[in-house]
C-alpha cells in the first residue's frame, strides 16, 4: 500500500514513474528534506527553480534513475553546498546556467 502523504510530512515534491515532467518557474520551500525528489522518470525539465529556505546537509534536488534531465537557470542560496544529488545507472543529466544569488 502506498499512501500519498503520510511518508513525507513537511517534505518537498515527490515524483515517481513519470514521463515528460516540467517544472518551470517553480518555487518550493520545505520544512525538511529536498525540494524535489524524482525517481524513475523519463524526461524531466527543471527550469528557473528556486527555494526560499534550504536545509543543512540536504540537496535541493534529488534524482534517481532519471533519463533526459535538464536543470537550468535555477537559483540557489550562496551558502548552499548541496544542489543536485544524482544516483542510478540510468540517470542522464544536463545542467546549465544555474547561479547562486
Amino acid at each position: 500500500m502506498m499512501y500519498d502523504l503520510e511518508p513525507m510530512a513537511g517534505a518537498g515534491f515527490f515524483l515517481k514513474n513519470g514521463k515528460n515532467i516540467c517544472f518551470h518557474g517553480v518555487s518550493i520551500t520545505t520544512r525538511q528534506g529536498s525540494s524535489i525528489h524524482a525517481e524513475d522518470v523519463e524526461g524531466l525539465e527543471i527550469h528557473s527553480f528556486k527555494t526560499h529556505k534550504s536545509h543543512k546537509d540536504t540537496y535541493l534536488i534529488e534524482l534517481a534513475n532519471v533519463q533526459r534531465a535538464y536543470i537550468g537557470s535555477c537559483f540557489t542560496n550562496p551558502k548552499d553546498e548541496y544542489f543536485v544529488h544524482v544516483e542510478g545507472e540510468e540517470t542522464e543529466i544536463i545542467s546549465s546556467d544555474n547561479s547562486k544569488r
Partner: peptide
Amino acid sequence: TASAGFIYGIPELPVENVTLTNVNIEMT
C-alpha cells in the same frame, strides 16, 4: 502541511506530460 506535491504513477504507464509553471509552494 504535508507535502509540496506527489506524483506516483505505475511503471508500465507513467504519468505523462505534466507541467507546473509559475507555481509557488511554501510548507508551513
